[in-house]
Computed example of a mutant assay.
Amino acid sequence: MPQTIPINDPRFTWRGMTSAEVANGSVKPWRIPHKEKALYDMNLVERAVMPTGIRLVFRTNSTTITGNCDSVDERSNIDLVVNGRLAGSVETVNETSFQFENLGSETKDIELWMPQFGSIRIDNLTFDDSAETSATSESTAPKWITYGSSITHCRTADSPTKTWPAIVARTRGYDLTCLGFGGQCHLDPMIARLIRDREADLISLCVGINIYGAGSLNERTFAPGIMGFIQIVREKHPTTPIALISPIYSPGRETALNPVGFTLEQVRKEVKRAGETLQAHGDDNITYINGLDVFDSDNAHLLPDDLHPNNEGYGIMASNLLGLLPRI
């Protein structure tokens, strides 16, 4: 008889998760402390329950892995990584279970990459009747936190390992925490506190596109907002490398004034100015990355809505950022 193990069993480890909402043995992974969600804007909360970048890891020699989960009508795939290599991807929309088969009977390191879009609650995993399942070794990989908008959240990537943060993390061997929140990158102080309080060897902040789109900060408040956000992070990460990244190319926005009188070109200048001001103030561990060096007008055809890259576009972002992000 196949053996079913509750998802809150200590043999299973969640990585890239901020908190776990546990109910009757099931787990819903969050990217903010879910018990404090009233302290966050509700639009951000709706994105924070989407587990982009979160992995469930363990070791097993089972030839089949089956999971039971809740049914959601809009949700990305779950990806299976075996011994560091992508081994499968399954759809989860309107499904109450997922399964990976023909995995071989050798003992292997398993990573289940959770959907980058849509929430998920998992009840248990089922294995072969004679399978042995154990906890994986504690990670010694460098810890990387990346914060940003929908362009970091990457809903339109084909699957969770195809987002640019996942590609960068897997290529460099980083332990990823992805804080990309579609439409909700507005330099919230609660997010600065969250980053401050997590272990990190590298931090990247992709800021500006949501602020431009919503007009949520202006010439008076934007650069000071960036600097204040970073200073909060610096309270517990005084020398951690921070990459400050301005918006990628977006046709129709480059020279168009938003409700507070910003163009996207001006937004980039303000992001750069904030970084240079912090450097002049003695912060030697700030790196500014121009978003146009990450994704420029030559790639405009990979922006189906003139804003969000498609799957190929996210691959280009990852390739360029691999050469631009500080190495640790």
Rank of each mutant, 00 (worst) to 15 (best):
V93E: 10
S97M: 03
V82W: 12
G104P: 14
I122Q: 03
L112I: 09
D79R: 01
T60R: 05
M114W: 02
E101S: 06
L80D: 00
L80H: 09
L80P: 04
E91K: 15
N68G: 05
P115L: 02
P115Y: 05
T64M: 03
F100G: 11
S89Q: 05
S97I: 11
E101P: 03
I78F: 15
F58R: 04
R55W: 11
V82A: 01
W113D: 03
F58L: 01
N124S: 15
V90E: 14
T92A: 00
G118H: 07
S62G: 06
V72H: 01
I78R: 01
D109Y: 09
C69V: 02
D123M: 15
S105L: 03
F100P: 04
N102A: 13
S97N: 14
S71G: 04
T60L: 07
T126H: 06
G67S: 14
G104F: 12
C69W: 01
K108Q: 02
S97G: 11
E74H: 12
S62Y: 11
V57K: 12
E74V: 00
A87M: 10
N83I: 13
G53T: 09
G53E: 13
I65R: 02
F127T: 04
N68Q: 01
W113S: 06
N68K: 06
F127R: 08
F58W: 11
G67H: 10
I110M: 06
N77M: 03
V90F: 03
I78P: 08
F58C: 09
N102Q: 13
N102S: 12
T107E: 06
L125Y: 15
N102G: 02
R59S: 10
F117Q: 07
T64P: 00
N94T: 08
E101L: 01
D109M: 11
S97L: 13
E106M: 10
R121N: 08
D73G: 08
L103F: 07
A87L: 01
T92M: 10
I122V: 05
I110H: 06
T107G: 06
E91P: 15
G88R: 10
T126P: 14
E106D: 13
S71C: 01
A87T: 14
I65M: 03
A87H: 10
N61I: 11
N83F: 11
S105D: 07
D109A: 11
D128K: 13
L125V: 10
A87C: 08
D128Q: 12
S105I: 09
S76W: 05
L86Q: 03
E101R: 12
S119L: 01
D109C: 00
E91N: 14
W113Y: 15
P115G: 02
E106Q: 13
V81A: 09
I110A: 03
N102Y: 14
N102I: 08
K108T: 15
V90I: 07
Q116N: 15
S105F: 12
S62D: 07
L86C: 08
P115I: 00
S62V: 07
I110Q: 11
L103G: 12
I54K: 09
C69Y: 00
R55A: 15
F127D: 06
L86I: 13
T107F: 03
E95Y: 05
W113C: 11
R59C: 08
V57L: 10
F100H: 12
E91Q: 13
E106T: 00
G88Y: 14
V82C: 13
Q99C: 02
I65F: 03
P115N: 06
T63M: 12
T64W: 14
I110D: 03
E111N: 02
